[in-house]
Each structure stands twice: as C-alpha cells, then as structure tokens.
Design a protein around this nucleic acid. Structure first.
Lengths: 333, 333
DNA sequence: AACCACGTTCGAAGCGCTTCGATTCAATTC
DNA sequence: GAATTGAATCGAAGCGCTTCGAACGTGGTT
C-alpha cells in the first residue's frame, strides 16, 4: 500500500504538504503542487479512507435508508437511489446502503460509529415509527417524504396537495363535473403513506371548491382488480367523465381495459395521472401527467445534506411544486 | 464521543482488554467481560469505524456494484440487493453502493482506499467490459453472472443452460412437438447478456435432441409488441402448442392477450416460464416455472465473499441448478 | 523450592492521515 | 536597514483503535 509518506518522499516534500495539495486547505506553490501530483500518479497513491476519517472526523459517506422490500413503485425508488448516488459522488461522497427493514437503529449505528456523516431516509410515512429515533441521530438527516410530526427534521417531497389540486383543477377547467380518483391499494392508505393522503386532500379540496362531483377508489394492482374498479368508476349513475389516477401500477392495465371496452381516451373519458414522465409518455396512450421528479428530489436531498454538513442549519420542509405536462389525454366537455 | 479509553476507565481495565472483549480474540474472564459489557452499555459506546479500519486493516464493508439504470427486471435486482445487504449484516458487514453506470474504476477506488474489503458485481454480461479491471482489483471479487472470459474470477449464477434444457424438456415430455421461446427484447441479446444466450442454448440443445420444432422470438415489453409477437408465435403453419417465456415483463400482457383471444392455458396452449416464484404464482394464470432464486444467490454471493476474506481461495464458478415448480400451466398433448 | 504452563491482563507501538503552530524566506513598509 | 507581513513549507501531535510481547498470578510438576 502506497502511503502519503511515500508520496511525500518521492516528491521531496513533507507529508503535510501532500495533504494540503490534496485538500487545498492551504496555499501551495504551483511548482510543488505539480510535483506532488506527479508523484501521486506515478506511485498510484490512494488515500486510506479509514485514516482520513479518523484524522479528519469525516467519513465522506452518507447513509441511505432504502425500502428494499417495497414492491410498490420500484422504478421510482431506483431513480431516487440512482440520483442520490450520482449527486453524492459529485461531492466526492459515497453511499452506504441501509435497509428500511433492518430497523431505525441502523441510522444511529452508522452515525455513532462514524461510518457516515449524514443520513437520507426514503419512503417516509405519515406516522413513521422511525421519526423519533431519527430526530435523535447526531448528524444531518434528510427525509424524503413528510411525516406528520416533522418538527426538528428536514424533509423534502413533491407538494402532493398542490398536485391533487392541480389534477382536479385541470379537469374542472375543461368542464368535467364528475371526476373519479383512482388511488393506491387500501394497504397504502392504511399504512398512512403521507403522499397518498395529501394528494387526496388536495384533490377533494379543489373539487369541493369547484362544486365537482367526485368518487374515490382504492385500487389494487392486477387486471381483475382494475377491471372491477372500472366497473365501479364508470357506473352510469356517476356520470364520470374524468379520471385522476394516482397509482402507477394500474396505468397499463387500466388503459388496456378501456380499450377493450372500446372507450376512447380522451374522447369518451379524460385521464390524467401522476407518475414519472417517461412512464406517462410510453403508455399505450400517452397521458397528461404531473411528473414525479425523482432525479431532482434526489439531487435536492443531497444538496440539503451537504449544506448541513458544514454549518448548523435550521431544519426545513421543502415541497417541490408539481409540473403538469399536457399530452392530450384530457378533452373539453 | 465515547472512546474505548473511557470504557476501559469506567470498567477499570485497560483499553486492550476492552478491545479483546469486543473481538473475542483472546480469552477474558467472565467477570471482566461482564463488567466491560456493562460499561459499554452504560456509556453507550460505539467503536469508531475509521479507527478500527485503520488499525485492523479491515473495513467490514463490501462494495456492491448495482445496475441502477437497468429498467429490466428491477424487482429481481432489488431482491438480490436486499438479500445481499441482509446476509452481509449477518456477518456484521455493511454495504457500500456503487453504480454500474459510474464505471469500473469505482470498484478499484473503494478497494484502493480501503473503503471496502471485497466487491460484489451484479448483472455481469458475456463480454463485460468491466471484467479486466475487476480481475486487477486487489480484493475478493464475486460476480453475479458469468462472463465469457472469467478466468481468475469467482462467478455465481443460475445454470441457465440447464434451465433452458429443463423448460424445453418439460414440454417435450408432455408430447409437445412445436415449441416457441419468447425471449427478451433484442437489445438484451445484442448486449450479450449471458443468461439470455445460455438459456437459449440449453433450449435449442434439448429441442434438437428431442427432434422438437422450435421458433425463437425476441419480444419487447408493451402490449402491442406482445400482441404482435403472439401473432407470429401462433401462426398456423407453426403448429405451436407450447410456449417457453424468458421475459418477465411480458408475462402479464401475454396472459391477458391470450385471454382476449379466448385461448385457454393450458387447454389450448401450454406456457412455462422462468421468473421469481411469487411472480409466477400471482399472475392471472399461475404458471409452471423455474424460479430465479435471488435470495439464495445473494446469500451464496455473500458466503463466497466471506470465505475469501480470511484465506486465499481459488476462484470458482458456481451454477445453481434450476428448480421447476409445476403450477399446472402445461398440458399433455 | 524452583520450575513451567496457562489464563488474564496490561502497556505501548503503530495504522495513515489531518491539522495546528512554528519556521523560513522573500517582498514590503517605514 | 530594521521591522513587518504573507506565502510556502515543515514537524509533530494526535485521531481511536488493534495487536504484539511482556508481565502477573495461580496451580500443578518435578
């Protein structure tokens, strides 16, 4: 193993000089810097992370708590993870993988052992049992998702309430007087997944304000569940003309089933959804949708963490405003 | 921060004694052990990972290279990751997340910096460009997937050749004389994903031996692609009576489309596949299938890594034998 | 009684790095 | 020309842990 000592010797300088070349924390002459950098390359030097962490009290690692067992929206989770890893690497940070299933003690463990400098927690729920323990973690913590009791914690999410309003408003603007919301399966609501409840609240607030009739349907994945749900949604008594879908897994089957029933989108039924842009765009019928900006959320999460690594910073809740893309799947009544 | 020194003082012993209590590398009297353990709990001591790594030259971390951008079989990838993290934690190891996309240099970097003691690489392809660099990594490396040139590397995978044989054989045994294989989309083959090619080889070997007619179809995801593919598969000239599907993403649409065409499984068409057991079991029609034993593969990968951490061990290629579960989706002709 | 062996424990030397004065030397200032 | 500054560099003290050799009883051998 090549150590900083050998680099120093090779370059004819002291260890501290090499260290300062590497960190840039003190000014070093161009000439010396060049020589040191050459030696580093020549010897193939890589600083030892443990020694560095020990001496500097910084691990340059963030712990990421991921819900690996979640079967729901895996693609979105992956996008988050991917974006967080990439942005962390931009800051020369690595990512330690912690699983939600392994329990909240994991976050505390890696911080207490100085394995990580900060924690990012994905998939935070309304009444998330991990919240108290996370609050006690002695390091910056950023939650993706906003728990009910988020005092003292930094959270980040899409503004689902605004999204619910916007989806409802978009249809109401186009003259729809009876709109159905197809949401996640019952377990998601029971689990208190905050985003589902918040979107619903926004949706109902807006429709109430506009005097639009609504029906709300919790729909499981699977073709039969979707078909059954559609029977309910399209019951003639309702007069449903617009559909808000907040459940990525049913989009494909839903559109298929509509086609099977010879219902045209948007001719017979307007459909609007919330899902990643590329999903919305590659469905059998491209759907007007609000994007889930996973990459952006991941990037902001990392920014929030990095900002809190240096100085003490007040906790904040950041809600990204939803962005709706019109793909022509809604018609004017 | 509580250090080992404070624990030692609190327990009235030396630092080294505390260390030996923790590591168990020397015998310690029950009495002392008890006192030390009490002090550890009382003070809330957590060993500093950096110091530990520096002194012991062991990080207790494995680097895991994950294809985060892969859109194919995300659920399987997650299962692997999940199982690897869990099994690594069983050994008191943590997992550092490296992305395939960030390039092969990442594995070398984390090893050279002593951030990890070993590397596990997922989603290895036939002519994987990362292989040469992985071979040069100065630490145990285990590949999930078998590249063509795997000399000197330890690899682990399902025996896809045997799986192909077994799937074909299962249908041939039941009297099918014309079998179609629906595989992954063309890009997967072009990329040289070894498992696709190996399954195909096994399939063709077996069918040739049995004198069974075959047709091979590369099918993209999406309902229209599936429908088009079925038109081809079911062309009357072929007389296809059995279907081997090696493409998890098309299973749902395929079964739907068969239903739409009023074709009964297995009455009109026998279908058999290779996918995770729970996927096969929860489809509209449960399918006889060979399981992708993700949990088991992950566990074995971790075992292989751990075995190689202590002593020098020869590289080996381990191929798990496929296990077929009959769910009644194939009929006798 | 001197010896050895063994189980337990201690002390101290690092592991490779960062960082804080201290030092040197040349350029500026009065 | 002495004093002051500031840039560039060095030396050494840790960071918190593991681990090796030594030391210390205690009990059994000879």
């Amino acid at each position: 193993m090549i150590t900083i000592k050998e680099v120093a010797h090779h370059a004819g300088v002291s260890m501290s000089t090499v260290s300062y070349v590497l960190s840039g924390k003190r000014s070093i002459s161009e000439e010396t810097k060049r020589r040191v950098e050459q030696s580093i390359v020549a010897l193939g030097y890589h600083p030892n992370a443990g020694a560095r962490a020990l001496a500097s009290n910084r691990s340059r690692v963030v712990g990421l708590v991921v819900p690996l067992h979640s079967d729901q929206n895996l693609p979105i989770i992956m996008r988050f993870v991917s974006s967080i890893v990439a942005r962390a690497r931009d800051h020369d940070y690595d990512v330690l993988l912690l699983t939600k299933e392994a329990g909240p003690g994991e976050a505390h463990r890696v911080i207490a052992r100085s394995m990580a400098d900060a924690i990012v927690v994905m998939d935070v729920e309304s009444a998330d049992p991990r919240v108290p323990e996370l609050r006690a973690v002695d390091a910056p913590v950023v939650l993706l998702g906003v728990p009910d009791d988020h005092e003292g914690l930094s959270c980040l999410d899409l503004d689902f309430t605004a999204a619910g309003r916007q989806l409802a408003g978009h249809l109401a603007d186009r003259g729809h007087r009876s709109i159905a919301l197809i949401g996640s399966p019952p377990p998601v609501y029971e689990r208190g997944t905050s985003f589902a409840a918040r979107l619903l609240a926004g949706f109902q607030g807006e429709t109430a304000k506009r005097g639009v009739l609504t029906s709300v349907h919790s729909c499981a994945a699977g073709y039969d569940a979707v078909s059954g749900c559609l029977d309910d949604v399209l019951h003639p008594d309702r007069g449903t003309t617009g559909l808000v879908v907040h459940n990525e897994a049913v989009l494909g089957p839903l559109l298929l089933e509509l086609r099977r029933r010879s219902l045209d989108v948007p001719g017979d039924l307007s459909v609007i959804t919330l899902c990643p842009d590329d999903v919305a765009a590659t469905l059998p019928v491209p759907l007007t949708s609000i994007a889930v900006p996973a990459e952006e959320l991941g990037a902001i999460a990392v920014e929030m963490v990095m900002a809190r690594l240096g100085r003490e910073l007040a906790p904040e809740v950041r809600l990204l405003q939803p962005l709706l893309t019109d793909r022509g799947s809604t018609a004017v009544r």
